[in-house]
Design a protein around this nucleic acid. Structure first.
Length: 263
DNA sequence: ATGTCGCCCTCCGGGCGA
């Protein structure tokens, strides 16, 4: 069994205690992070190494973004271009012991105004999705896991109100269409939705502005683990560790998404 | 809705991004 996790930690340095607690309670083999918010020369390697992550790859910039892949099993960075502007949004690796490829992405949030003509951030988000889609349509890679904070809640039941949220970035039609187009490039399998069936609502992110947090609070399912079709049958379980959202002090606003593969 | 975080570069609090 191989346990792979994606978690937007909103600062790896601020979240070290929670990462340690999560690691001891959930024992991931591979932990993929987004929003590490740290330059590579300041990445907390020793602390994460002590948690058992002897294998570490990270791509960060100051202040924002930043992705990392931490593992207890060997990982090798692929010799391939990173998506976007190399601003800490994409790492692609192989897991030689399992003959797997893994792509960790942090899709741009896109700002507030869902109009690419008036909002550069939204244009960049759509552009990033288009590049990701083109890459995957061209390569159609085998035994591949595509995961991360995709900043899109694609399903009607991935949001607290489909009707209301259609006006807001993360659930506009153009974003939903972009996500569906990505899925169709390779018949990607949305792992969480195989275990938590629609119309069950489920979320991975809740605004810090939500006062009394509960899993049913107004949230969005922004984090996803997609499997190439040849891995679909290997899925044992996908679950959201929503409990971390109430950990004290200072939780991330995202919960970890945990996938178990029979390998 | 404009309520909360975390980072930065310092005018150490206000701007930025989420």
């Amino acid at each position: 069994m191989l346990r792979i996790v994606t978690w937007n930690v909103n600062s790896v340095r601020t979240r070290l205690e929670h990462i340690a607690r999560f690691s001891s309670e959930y024992a991931p083999d591979v932990l993929c992070l987004q929003e590490t918010k740290v330059r590579d020369d300041m990445f907390p390697k020793p602390a994460l190494s002590e948690m058992g992550y002897t294998q570490q790859l990270f791509a960060g910039i100051p202040s924002n973004n930043g992705v990392a892949i931490l593992a207890k099993t060997p990982i090798l960075e692929r010799n391939a271009p990173r998506l976007g502007r190399d601003d800490g949004r994409h790492l692609s690796v192989t897991l030689p012991e399992y003959d797997l490829r893994l792509d960790n992405v942090y899709v741009p949030a896109g700002g507030n105004l869902p109009d690419p003509e008036l909002n550069d951030k939204f244009a960049y988000k759509l552009d990033f999705m288009a590049h990701l889609t083109t890459m995957m349509a061209t390569e159609r890679p085998k035994r591949t896991i595509l995961l991360g904070d995709m900043n899109i809640a694609p399903g009607e039941y991935d949001v607290f109100s489909h009707r209301q949220m259609l006006k807001f970035v993360s659930h506009t039609l153009v974003e939903i269409t972009a996500f569906e187009k990505l899925l169709r490039t390779h018949d990607w399998h949305n792992s969480l939705r195989a275990d938590v069936l629609e119309p069950q609502r489920i979320y991975s992110w809740w605004s810090y502005r939500v006062r009394k947090w509960q899993p049913e609070s107004r949230g969005l399912l922004l984090d996803h683990i997609l499997l190439s079709p040849d891995l679909m049958a290997q899925q044992q379980q996908a679950q959201l560790a929503q409990v971390t959202r109430s950990w004290k002090p200072k939780p991330s606003d995202h919960a970890p998404l945990v996938l178990d593969l029979r390998l």
